[in-house]
Amino acid sequence: MPASTSSAHPTTTDVLSGVDLTGRRALVTGASSGLGEEIARALTAAGAETTLAVRDLARGDAAADRIATSTGRGRPRVMELDLLSPASISRTAAAWTGSLHILVANAGIMVPPESRTAEGWESQFMTNHLGHFALAERLLPALTTARDARVVLASSNAHLLGPVDVDALAGQAEPYEPWSAYAVSKTALILFAVEANRRWSARGITVSAYNPGFIQTGLQKNLPAEMRVSTAGAKTLSEGAATPVFLAASPDAASAGGKYFENVAEAPLAVDEVRDMSRPETFRGVAPFALDEDTAAKLWALSETATEDW
């Protein structure tokens, strides 16, 4: 994807200035390194009781130690979560006790070699969307008990390349094309935010989606070298984490439900008809198809059916 050309980006410190999260409990997926660790660090620094949901417990423990050392706060809890495994998702949700005020669905994979779960789901759709859908649904009682909960979903500007055909699910039923499948999975998360917010807002739950921007993390490991974000064009981790942390914790994000944010602001509708990798401005904003309420409802029904026996 094209690199950001702007260097004027707020940080987690900026968006959490004056915010006290004491007494609030947060769960961040994919928090053993990179952006997820930075999100968890920022929430912990603001006083939240934070849990890292990770595939590799050893790496998660190391991240928890780093967060405790850097913040001087309580050490985050670490839980095992493999979003490619329905059994793991169910175990993680069942192990949660008490209220949950903040759920940040940060974990994700990008353009890996083709693989599918035992249930037949393409790995990006499963990890990025379906696994998080199932986790959030199973944590709904804990989110409801919190009375003022935030669910924050990591999308991408790549969604602009991937409208979701719920009947065909491009990248699922069709021959595998890595970027198409990735884009579809990220559009699915915005549609998830639209429908979940419609369903859950009366429970006091605000659901939103975001684009963190261009950051050098392990997410890029499957990209050829020429496509990886350069240091000159990338945000820092604190800049990339600012938008999800804003949505998760800032009082100013109370009305963010069902919306898509980038650079700590609601994204405008994307109007460029042609996406040009050499022109970053054509990869800004949110595609109208990602906010379509009918598509969101259809995708919800498919996701619910797919995960009901997990």
Rank of each mutant, 00 (worst) to 15 (best):
R138V: 12
L139Q: 13
L140G: 09
A142M: 13
A146C: 10
R147I: 08
R147V: 12
R147Q: 14
A149R: 02
R150G: 10
R150M: 08
R150P: 08
V151R: 03
V151N: 00
V151S: 06
V152S: 12
V152Y: 08
L153K: 05
A154L: 13
S155V: 00
S155T: 00
S156R: 02
S156C: 06
N157P: 07
A158T: 14
L160G: 02
L160C: 01
G162T: 07
V164G: 09
V164H: 11
V166I: 11
D167E: 15
A168R: 15
A168I: 14
A168N: 08
A168M: 12
L169Q: 01
L169F: 02
A170E: 13
G171E: 05
G171K: 07
G171N: 09
Q172N: 11
Q172L: 10
E174F: 00
P175D: 03
E177G: 00
P178H: 07
P178Y: 00
P178S: 03
P178T: 03
W179Y: 10
W179C: 00
S180A: 13
A181Q: 03
A181K: 01
A181Y: 07
Y182R: 04
Y182T: 03
V184G: 05
V184C: 04
K186D: 04
A188L: 06
A188Y: 01
L189I: 05
I190R: 04
I190T: 14
I190V: 15
L191Q: 02
L191N: 05
F192K: 05
A193M: 02
A193T: 01
A193L: 04
A193V: 05
A193S: 01
A193G: 05
V194D: 01
E195P: 09
A196R: 04
N197H: 15
R198Q: 12
R198D: 15
S201Q: 14
V207D: 03
V207I: 09
V207C: 06
V207M: 07
Y210W: 00
P212M: 06
P212E: 05
P212H: 03
G213W: 02
G213E: 01
I215E: 07
T217V: 03
Q220Y: 11
N222A: 15
A225Y: 12
E226A: 15
E226Y: 14
M227D: 13
R228G: 12
V229L: 00
V229F: 03
S230N: 10
S230G: 13
T231H: 13
T231S: 15
A232F: 12
A232I: 13
G233Y: 09
G233A: 08
G233W: 11
K235I: 10
K235D: 14
T236N: 09
S238A: 14
S238P: 06
G240D: 01
A241F: 10
A241G: 13
A241H: 12
A241P: 11
F246S: 07
F246D: 12
L247D: 14
A249M: 10
A249T: 07
S250G: 09
S250E: 04
S250W: 06
P251S: 12
P251K: 05
S255N: 15
S255I: 06
A256P: 00
